[in-house]
Design a binder for these strands. Sequence first.
RNA 1: GGCUGGGUGGCAGAGUGGUCAUGCAGCGGUCUGCAACACCGUUUACGCCGGUUCGAUUCCGACCCCAGCCUCCA
Length: 461
Amino acid sequence: MLPLKLFDTYERRVREFIPLVEGEVGLYACGPTVYNYAHIGNLRTYLFEDCLRRVLEFNGFKVNHVVNITDVGHLTSDADTGEDKMELSARETGRDAWQLADFYSEAFKADLIHLNTLAPKIWCRATDHIVEQIEFVVDLETKGYTYRTSDGIYFNSRKLNNYGYLARLDVDGLQAGARVQLGERQFVTDFALWKFSNAKEQRQMEWDSPWGVGFPGWHIECSAMSAKYLGDFFDIHCGGEDHIPIHHTNEIAQTEASRGTRLANFWMHGYFLQVKNAKMAKSTGDFLRLETLIEAGYSAMDYRYFCLTAHYRSQMSFSWESLTANQTALARLYLHAYEWGAPGDVSSDYLDRFIAFINEDLNMPRALALVWDMVRDDELDPGTKKATLLKFDEIFGLQIAAWQPGISEVPQAVLDLADARTQARADKDWQRADELRDQIADLGYAVEDTREGPKITPRAT
RNA sequence: GGCUGGGUGGCAGAGUGGUCAUGCAGCGGUCUGCAACACCGUUUACGCCGGUUCGAUUCCGACCCCAGCCUCCA
């Protein structure tokens, strides 16, 4: 088996992945802040992480996969001047912050299930780990990396000589060009470890601490929880590209100060999905959810396939046109696989080429191109193609084995008309057959005569 | 303005110092009662200007444009 190579943002290069403990991988993925639904851009990152997980397991590693849920402390501004997102959302919707967190956590998990991602071994919520976070801050305080202002305990980024290395930050340049309010912070890159509750208003989420009642800063949860579940130095930490300059930079700073490690051996980042040349942002309000796609007639697998066509380290453009293109491609692939019948033996030649692609920093577009080469390969018999594709699908996760041509969820009235049309066609009464097709169309369905019989699909509106 | 990354054919999107990415769409066929589906064949490309080289889309430099972060963020 070819060695697995992955791109490490910390070193800015592709290098061989060798686990710290033989045969095992500690994988920590930054999860959602549960104040709203996840949009399809968010989900692209989790699909990348799912591919990573699957490739690691394909290589024979046991993956200890941890995903956190941020349900407190993430401010509306990363400059620590904004409001807690959970509290804000709770106030706006008139709901309890705790209920809100549960609701959106479950919605998020449901999306991941629809997308056929492998469940993490551990889900961890920030609010369930307040003690660990306080202990982490106490440790930082003991080691002299903190200072106190009127609204919280802050991390002194100036105490580290390589602060910002992950993002290649020009710290001096940041100071010169800073447009953010410094407040009582001593330096722009300093950040909150613990925030005090405002005496004037009652927070729904707050805890006692050595520094008074308040709540943890956003970054400390990941350092504290990853240390608890994976240790002070583990294999891979991932998240979205936007986390490179602030969130992950600060996680590294905290852990470096407290534990003396850079937290993870590999730092990996999924890149943004763009819509009309701009990233999809939760704050704009009009973002696309997985459910939006499903309502428009696409399946979760269509979106999964769509994401597989681009490398995880490339920003990708979303459009309905390209989603439709990939829906068509996947439908054809399903049909091919179905017609190939029972699986035979896996082609070792194709499998070797496949592994070469996925082990070269998860090159899914290449792996997918290989699938189409195989589809059109006259040298291979159907059983071999089927077995090989099913093997590949352990990585793709497109649920190819389960697919079959279905007419499920089509109203009985439409099915009756389709039956009548089939009879008319058998009688060679073409006029009657076309009339029935028009009637089916009026009910919102299209009928096509495939080799497996009539195929009925909802018409695009 | 500072920092990070990118500009590939109608769309999406790989890759490489000199022979094909791939998918969708288009075009021409086979099939079909007509269509659609499926299949076969096929057209269009590497932002701009210099440099290195026998040869650059691929390496180097300048320029233009785009995205991300610095302000909410996967």
